[in-house]
Simulated assay, not measured.
Amino acid sequence: MKSIEVVAAIITHEDHILCVQRGPAKFDYISHKFEFPGGKVEPGESGEEAITRELQEELKLDISETHYYMTVNHTYPDFHITMHAYLCPVTTREIVLTEHVDAKWLTKDALLQLDWAAADVPFVKKLMAN
């Protein structure tokens, strides 16, 4: 089974968290699910470098700080994912969606209203518990 290492950004502005929705995917189990933005770690890249690059690619968003949050290991039917999440506070909510079909800024209490990708659920649960 294929294994991939990815990063995810928990982007915060004031008391809201950015949630982005995937478009149609080749795997139904992640199609149209909400997730924290991010992507694959390239060879030789640190997690911080990967998250900075991915947010620029996916959201045209520049971030100035990242704080490691937690790592999740999850096995989907077709691959295994190791996902490192970083808290990324930002000073603006201005983003440009280049890969996702929707975005919502929600308070942590509202996060469970969304249909999350399974690997992102542990992040949601930890955010809501804190």
Results as ranks from 00 to 15, higher is better:
61 L>T: 13
47 G>Q: 05
6 V>D: 00
119 A>H: 11
52 T>Q: 12
29 Y>G: 02
29 Y>A: 04
52 T>E: 09
59 L>S: 13
121 V>F: 12
19 C>D: 09
100 H>F: 15
63 I>K: 11
38 G>M: 06
70 M>L: 15
85 A>G: 13
71 T>A: 10
50 A>S: 15
19 C>N: 07
86 Y>G: 12
62 D>V: 09
36 F>V: 13
92 T>E: 13
100 H>I: 00
88 C>A: 14
129 A>Q: 14
75 T>D: 07
62 D>E: 14
121 V>E: 14
10 I>M: 03
101 V>W: 00
60 K>Q: 15
59 L>Y: 12
115 D>Q: 15
73 N>T: 14
46 S>Q: 10
74 H>G: 00
58 E>M: 03
97 L>S: 11
23 G>V: 04
105 W>Y: 08
83 M>P: 00
115 D>N: 15
81 I>D: 03
15 D>N: 15
75 T>F: 02
72 V>I: 03
1 M>S: 14
3 S>K: 11
46 S>N: 09
98 T>I: 01
82 T>P: 01
77 P>G: 03
10 I>P: 02
11 I>L: 13
13 H>M: 07
52 T>H: 12
67 H>T: 12
62 D>I: 11
31 S>I: 01
110 A>L: 06
108 K>Q: 11
86 Y>A: 07
93 R>E: 14
40 K>M: 04
34 F>Y: 15
2 K>S: 05
76 Y>R: 03
22 R>G: 02
80 H>Y: 05
105 W>R: 08
114 L>K: 09
87 L>I: 14
29 Y>W: 12
96 V>K: 15
118 A>G: 12
48 E>L: 10
4 I>V: 09
72 V>T: 10
22 R>V: 01
77 P>S: 01
128 M>K: 14
94 E>F: 02
48 E>G: 02
32 H>Q: 11
105 W>L: 04
14 E>A: 07
21 Q>Y: 05
99 E>S: 13
50 A>G: 12
128 M>W: 02
27 F>P: 01
13 H>G: 12
62 D>R: 14
26 K>R: 06
62 D>Y: 11
69 Y>N: 11
81 I>G: 06
28 D>H: 03
15 D>W: 00
18 L>M: 08
19 C>W: 05
60 K>R: 14
116 W>C: 05
12 T>Q: 09
13 H>F: 14
93 R>V: 06
28 D>R: 05
97 L>T: 09
95 I>V: 14
121 V>N: 13
2 K>F: 01
44 G>I: 05
118 A>I: 00
91 T>H: 08
44 G>H: 10
126 K>G: 05
18 L>F: 02
78 D>N: 13
59 L>G: 15
128 M>R: 15
101 V>T: 13
108 K>C: 07
16 H>W: 07
77 P>K: 03
129 A>S: 15
118 A>W: 00
16 H>L: 15
30 I>P: 04
5 E>Q: 09
79 F>H: 08
22 R>D: 02
8 A>C: 08
87 L>P: 02
91 T>W: 01
67 H>R: 15
10 I>W: 05
19 C>P: 07
46 S>V: 10
63 I>S: 11
12 T>F: 00
121 V>I: 14
64 S>M: 07
98 T>F: 00
9 A>Q: 06
79 F>R: 06
125 K>A: 07
96 V>I: 08
5 E>V: 02
10 I>A: 01
32 H>A: 03
12 T>Y: 00
124 V>P: 06
48 E>K: 13
10 I>Q: 04
41 V>R: 13
